[in-house]
Amino acid sequence: MHSNIFDRYLHNNSSIHRLAPQVKVVIAILFIFSNALLPDGDWLSFAISWAVILLLNWLARLNLGYTLKRSLIVLPFTLAAITALFSVPGKTLTIWQIGSLELILTDAGLIRFLSIIVRSWLSVQIAILLVATTKFPDLIHALEHLRLPKMLVTVIAFLYRYMSVLTDEVIRLMRARQARSAVLPGRNGGGSLLWRARTAGNMVGQLFLRSYERSDRIYHAMLSRGYSGHLRTLNQHELNINDWLIIALAFLLIAFLQLFAHSIG
């Protein structure tokens, strides 16, 4: 596994792909912020936001199925919001009795719950769109332009560069463990819980030592190539007037959407 399985960038040549990464980061964050500000139950504004996302998807020539499939990643967390169903006062729909716990499902609670899910689902699609149309190294560089501390950006760049290397290392460790963990049919394998946990802990320790020693080698290799404390890039990503116009346009559109949402609600 030498390709980066974590990379979500989809090669395409669209106007969205060509935008400067800083512009895309700024607009994505603005858009997610706008979702968070939309009032509960304002389905029309949610639909408008989704239409914009679909339009961007189309402009970026992305496969809609891909975005929708990836967006399911927020599903497990909806469990955490389920109590919103019972926490907002409103017209009672049904009452569930679980043990001594009385759960009153209200219409307002239902609207609140659905709004949270929709907001989350829209926001994650924006994030998916961002990483599918921006190469991650460019994204990291954009963070530097957005005044993130250089050191933190460098750490993130290293993390990105070496995560697949060390993930490969983990896969080798796990394969080695599996190869030594034969189980006879009808018997339980693999010792006590403590023993299994200690094996996992030893693997983490082993991975740490390999990583530590690797970082030493990497540092010396970098020094010999002229490393002086920060990473350089050939891609300057300077913003031109067009980029500023696009940011201004996005800002205006979002402001309009907010005005619209809050004036009818």
Binding site: V155, F158, R161, M163, V165, L166, Y212, R214, S215, I218
Partner: peptide, 8 residues
């Protein structure tokens, strides 16, 4: 670089 590798 050490912190970067440790993050990975």
């Amino acid at each position: 670089p050490l912190m970067g590798i440790m993050a990975a």
